[in-house]
Amino acid sequence: MVTNQEKLAQPKLTQPGTRANKEVMRLAASWYIAMPSLDLGKKPIAIELFGQPLVAWRDQTGRAAIMDRYCSHLGASLAVGQVVDGCIRCPYHHWCYDSSGECVSAPELEHIPPKARQATYYTIEKYGYIWVWYGSKVPLFPLPEFPSAEAQRHKYMAFRYAYATKTTVQRVVEAGGCDYYHAISLHNFKMTNPSQFTIFNNQDSANDSEPVIQKEAYLKFQLKVWNRFMFEHNLLGPIAQILGLSADTFTFQTDIWPSGCRMTGFADNNEHETLKVLFCTTPINENMTIAHFFVMLRKTGNFLLDIPYSLIYRLRSRIISDEDISVLDTIKHDGGGAYIYQDRGVLEHRKLYQRWVDKVE
């Protein structure tokens, strides 16, 4: 559940805002990224999210609001309206709505019709993104924390990237956080020993510096691999090895929730993590999902190495994303069935995802 402080800071919502076709979208109740914070300025913008036409805008405090795009009066687009006195004003008849979706004023009307409301979503702005809760009137679990992006930012080199793909949230999260098996085949990672994949029953089972996520909303995986997994890709492996940036073993710890995950990587059993990744999704419609990655690489302590280190990892991320897109754009949304032992992470996430699909109101 959300904290009392978050409840007080959030405007009272007029409707749950979960009118997407449940059978078509099959979205889990969860946190999703609406857009990067920098994409929303002072003017309203039209967006599509959850298969719905919406409008995003900022009130007088700068808080992001996301609601139905078309005015409850005669259907004019609020995206071409203006923000006036902290409310979004319809361009047609100048009806004004506050950030909770309530119509607070309309020219020459003493009594505003009860139906003069816009369905509005619960939003939080954090880590450089505008997040939106889908599935119920108020969030059923808090936004997972990523404290390294704030208090410890000076220790890392950070970059963001995103890609769009023609498939579902579930498939994108599987590829980004659960399916280590495809790294060997699709991404051609070479391993001298069999990888070790562990599913933890609770978050305390692994040595983790990240805050706990609500138990019923997440899974915890650990993957240990050998032979310079981090950079063993085309020419990047030899270059990284020459620069002294390779590692003999690499361990990933992943906290995964229905719509994204938080990953921490350790090289050669180092007590300090090598990288941290925040990964989440934007469900545009049933055939389009955007994957967002916020990557933080721990600085090496040598400025001359930090630059090539960051460039190599960025290039590696781009190559891997392109390879994933080539498959995800053509994958069958509900295909498969001949499961093997290496699929247990995917299958565990599918059970988690379905539990939260069932929670959608």
Rank of each mutant, 00 (worst) to 15 (best):
E48C: 01
I256W: 04
L13I: 05
A64C: 09
T264H: 04
L304R: 12
M25N: 05
I284R: 02
L140C: 04
L275T: 10
K7Y: 13
Q203Y: 04
A29L: 05
I340P: 06
R160D: 15
L186M: 06
P114L: 06
A79S: 15
T168C: 08
P16T: 11
L13M: 11
H154N: 10
Y341P: 02
A338H: 14
E125Y: 03
R160Q: 14
M1D: 15
T14F: 09
N193L: 13
S195G: 13
N227Q: 09
N188W: 00
V80C: 12
G17S: 05
V80P: 01
N302H: 04
V295C: 11
P283W: 01
F279P: 01
G51C: 07
V360D: 10
H272R: 15
T167K: 03
H333L: 05
V80K: 11
V104R: 14
T14H: 09
L186F: 01
T3C: 07
I47F: 03
A29S: 13
L38Q: 14
N201Q: 13
H73W: 09
S148Q: 13
I130G: 04
D59E: 11
A29N: 04
G51N: 08
S310H: 06
N234D: 12
V24N: 03
E23S: 05
H349T: 10
E323C: 05
Q354A: 11
F303V: 14
G62F: 08
T249S: 15
L109H: 15
R69Q: 13
V104D: 07
L235R: 11
E125M: 02
F221G: 01
N207P: 00
S100W: 12
N21H: 12
F279Q: 07
K22M: 04
A29R: 08
E232R: 06
T330N: 15
G237I: 04
L54P: 00
P107M: 13
Q82W: 14
V295Q: 10
L311D: 01
G81W: 08
F50N: 02
M35D: 00
C178Y: 00
N201T: 04
P114A: 09
Q118S: 08
N287Y: 12
F250H: 13
K126M: 02
D306P: 03
I213M: 15
D334R: 08
E23G: 00
I124L: 15
K299H: 05
H154E: 15
I88T: 09
T281A: 12
S105R: 14
W95A: 08
M191R: 07
A247E: 11
I290E: 05
I213A: 10
S246T: 10
K276N: 07
L54R: 07
N269F: 14
I33V: 12
D59T: 07
A240R: 01
P53T: 02
E125S: 08
